[in-house]
Design a protein around this nucleic acid. Structure first.
Length: 860
DNA sequence: ATAGGGTTAG
């Protein structure tokens, strides 16, 4: 396929990033691979045949077992890497997920009773180094070897006495003569520190051990790798691994497993993990269950559902039985990617394999349900869980109350809190943050203030998240005074802002229309050494053209410049240094004082595009990789442009970021549909690998943009392709059309196609169902300003055609008409089909050379 | 050496 690339797709790029290489690589592979392209993009107005999914069935091994079964999707498949790259999962996720000090599951500790004695005596002399040494001296002869010391290190660590643990370690290691025993002590100490998240201390112990001559063991290296893994420091773990090879030590299975684990916890691309896996195979190691479980965890971070399924199948092919970890991790991949039907199927399969779902299983799937809006299912799972005799733990409770709180169902949320407390769990910071967020989003500022006070009286310390939640709640509510107070308190507490903190403030300001102030903070965070990420940028790009009541001016124009790169570097630096200011405070105080006010609309548009282009420039400078959300945002921004010229400035950004996406968007926009359709299809293949809301958002953005600029037929083709791929998970039947997940452009294109289909039923002399209905919901998925109420757009469309559809009295998001009336309307006028058939404003004849046989014109 | 929780874009 696609060997002759049209010129639009080969334009050179300002910088080659992995993403673009990923796409190219991917295409090379799939072109020869086992996963042939969609056979025919022939457009039909009829619903596609039900998708026959093979993803869930284990492939049948072709012949006698090869070393690696070629039937399985290659582990090093670049498509996985691409999907991970493209989907824009948050990179900070794993750090926030860590919980250190989780007690070890296997309770078979090999320590002696004496060790427990020693522990208690040691704890009593906390803080007195000499006393500690004398206690240790007293026990020296009675403690038996590394098992006892391991116990001491771990227990002291769990009691927040890691410096005492290290003292014990030093005591033991200096009195130990045997190298191997010293080595064991060191590995044990390293892994204890690692588990506590004290990776720097672990590293120190390791380095000392190496220089003293007892640390050069595969165990010490593996322990350090694992320590980095637990802190999500994948790069560091890999560095240790490389050093290990240089030191002529052979990694073992545990080393490899720890390294793969590091990839998962560090949010690395799947490619990295699979390279390690390949290296492992090449060195003659057979992967075990933990290897696969760790690989599955990498999929979870990258949202790689297909890859996870392949791995799961590959496991059974190798005869490795899944365990509860396998299932829970697999469920995590499914649930976090929105594949809830698969999640339920897998969960139902567990008991048949004699693996019973536990509280982790349930909370994983419940969370997935909640995220994909399946509230009823989430709640019935909670009941199922209770019925099965699985007690809710802290995570489950917090999970559940967060679901209620986020829906504004506070009574139920508070009931969960009560139940949680009656079970013996006190409210923790997670509980409070969820409640604050929930009440805040509903504008219940009285409750927010109340809760925050309660938090203090109950001595639950507020953390970074608490403050960032509060600040953005107040900003979005226009309570600038309160936002300022919270920010001041946050600084007083000595908490450090991070990228998420800034991003949230930036987003809140954007949502209030203060795009330029946001750009200012973007500038400041960079200077303070906090790297903005793609989410930060996407917030600002999304804000482009979103009109709000509030514009932006400053009393002193010189004071604020939104285009950091335009200011000569030196000047800008000097400005900041001279004042040593905190711009957040400055912006907040201006807001509170009402000094940021409305600006003339015409000049606002111009200012904004300059500002956003400056933001793009900085994104390039920092080499921040855009993701599909960025692309959707750019396309949505195009839809908000009033002129083609303005839109092309934005499209140019798309081109600089990604030629394939640009090629498709631009090609369809310009009417080169026939030439780019093959590329469009392969782009849609990529998009379909993402979670469903990401995928539908992209389709929505692309169709809105095409529709906005008059390429209605192109928009329709995209929509039909999306429908074929079940992007919107919606129904299309002869009696009902469900548009509720679609943007207004996509929905309108869809309505045309659907009515045309109805028309053909009528013209063929068949009877229509007695009632036809079109569901719109509330149209929150369209980003086109002034066009954003899907319902209104559809209403206008339907009435404009003189159709008999009317809003249902029982459901304002639904248009209905008796089938007979629709049939009468269609028969009445011969011009209906012409009304329904969409045309592109710009269309070019097909280039004969690229005339693909499957690109036939749409026919009735 | 392996599993679930709270924060940012859509």
């Amino acid at each position: 396929m696609a060997s002759s690339t049209p010129p639009t797709l080969t334009t050179s790029k300002p910088y080659q990033n992995h993403h673009i290489q990923g796409i190219q690589n991917h295409h090379r592979r799939t072109a020869n691979g086992h996963n042939p392209h969609h056979p025919s993009p022939k457009v039909s107005l009829h619903p596609p045949p039900p998708k026959t999914s093979t993803a869930n069935k284990p492939p049948v091994p072709a012949t006698a077992a090869p070393y690696r079964n070629p039937n399985f999707a290659p582990l090093s498949a670049s498509k996985s890497e691409l999907a991970a790259d493209f989907s824009g999962r948050r990179s900070t996720r794993f750090v926030s997920k860590m919980h250190f000090g989780r007690p070890k599951a296997n309770g078979s500790s090999k320590h002696s009773v004496v060790a427990e004695d020693a522990l208690h005596q040691l704890i009593r002399c906390s803080g007195d180094d000499r006393l500690i040494d004398s206690v240790l001296l007293g026990f020296q002869s009675k403690l038996c070897g590394s098992d006892d010391y391991n116990f001491l290190f771990r227990e002291l660590g769990n009691r927040n006495e890691s410096s005492m643990a290290i003292q014990c370690f030093e005591f033991a290691v200096t009195r130990e003569r045997r190298r191997t025993e010293q080595g064991k002590l060191a590995s044990s100490m390293i892994s204890v520190l690692g588990r506590l998240g004290k990776v720097e201390l672990a590293k120190k112990v390791f380095e000392t051990a190496v220089s003293e001559g007892y640390g050069n063991t595969v165990y010490a290296y593996s322990a350090l790798i694992s320590a980095y893994a637990k802190s999500g420091l994948c790069d560091e773990a890999i560095k240790v691994f490389d050093t290990m090879k240089l030191a002529n030590l052979k990694p073992n299975l545990v080393t490899y497993n720890a390294l793969i684990d590091a990839c998962g916890k560090g949010g690395a691309d799947f490619k990295r993990a699979s390279d390690i896996f390949d290296d492992m195979l090449n060195n003659g190691f057979q992967p075990d269950r933990i290897t696969y479980n760790s690989l599955l965890a990498v999929c979870s971070g990258g949202g790689l559902w297909e890859t996870a399924m392949n791995l799961f199948n590959e496991m059974s092919y190798r005869g490795i039985d899944p365990d509860i970890y396998t299932y829970n991790t697999l469920l995590d991949v499914a649930s976090s990617g929105g594949h809830m039907d698969s999640a339920f199927r897998i969960m139902a399969e567990m008991p048949t394999k004699n693996i019973m779902p536990n509280e982790v299983t349930y909370s994983t799937v419940i969370r997935g349900c909640a995220r994909s809006g399946r509230l009823d299912q989430a709640l019935s799972l909670v009941n199922e869980m209770k019925y099965a005799g699985i007690r809710l733990d802290r995570v489950s409770y917090n999970n559940l109350l967060a679901i209620y709180a986020s829906l504004g169902r506070f009574e139920e949320a508070l009931n969960v809190v009560k139940e949680m407390e009656s079970t013996g769990f006190r409210k923790d910071v997670v509980t409070y943050n969820a409640l604050l967020d929930g009440f805040g989003k509903q504008g219940r500022y009285d409750k927010v203030k109340d809760l925050f006070k309660r938090m203090k009286t109950e001595k639950v310390p507020a953390n970074l998240l608490t403050y960032s939640t509060l600040i953005s709640v107040y900003l979005k509510g226009g309570l600038y005074q309160e936002a300022t107070e919270m920010y001041k308190e946050f600084k007083q507490e000595g908490l450090k802002a991070d990228v998420v903190f800034y991003s949230e403030i930036i987003d809140s300001l954007c949502k209030k229309g203060f795009v330029e102030s946001s750009a200012l903070l973007l500038d400041e965070m960079t200077r303070k050494g906090i790297q903005p990420n793609v989410v930060t940028y996407n917030s600002i790009i999304n804000a482009f053209g979103q009109s709000t009541d509030t514009g932006f001016t400053v009393e002193n124009e010189q004071e604020i410049k939104c285009l950091p790169s335009v200011i000569p570097e030196g000047d800008a630096d000097k400005k900041l240094d001279n004042r040593d200011e905190d711009r957040i405070i400055k912006v907040f105080e201006q807001l509170a004082a009402g000094k940021l006010s409305i600006v003339e609309k015409a000049s606002k548009g111009r200012k904004e595009i300059i500002c956003v282009l400056g933001v793009f420039r900085k994104m390039h400078e920092l080499e921040i990789k855009p993701n599909v959300v960025t692309f959707s945002a750019i396309l949505n921004a195009c839809s908000r442009c009033s002129s083609f010229e303005e839109a092309s400035l934005l499209l140019e950004e798309l081109r600089l970021f990604d030629n394939q996406v640009y090629g498709v968007a631009h090609g369809l926009l310009m009417g080169y549909r026939e030439n780019v359709w093959v590329h469009a299809l392969s782009l849609f293949d990529e998009v379909k690998r993402m979670d469903s809301s990401t995928a539908s958002a992209f389709y929505n953005a692309l169709t809105d943009m095409l529709w906005h600029f008059g390429q209605k037929r192109g928009a329709q083709l995209v929509v039909l392709e999306g429908k074929r791929r079940q992007v919107w998970e919606n129904t299309w039947s002869d009696s009902c059309l469900d548009l509720h997940l679609m943007s207004s452009g996509a929905a309108r294109a869809m309505v045309h196609a659907w009515l045309l289909n109805i028309c053909s039923i009528v013209y063929e002399g068949h009877e229509l169902p007695s009632l036809l209905s079109i569901l719109t919901g509330w149209g929150k998925h369209s980003k086109v300003v002034g066009d954003c109420a899907l319902k209104r757009a559809i209403e206008a469309l339907l009435s404009g055609m003189g159709s008999p559809f009317r809003v249902a009295t029982t459901n304002i998001g639904r248009f209905i008409s008796p089938g007979a009336m629709v049939a009468a309307w269609m028969r009445e006028s011969t011009s209906i089909p012409n009304l329904l058939i969409l045309q592109d404003d710009r269309a070019y004849p097909e280039t004969p050379r690229l005339n693909h046989p499957h690109l036939q014109p749409l026919s009735l």
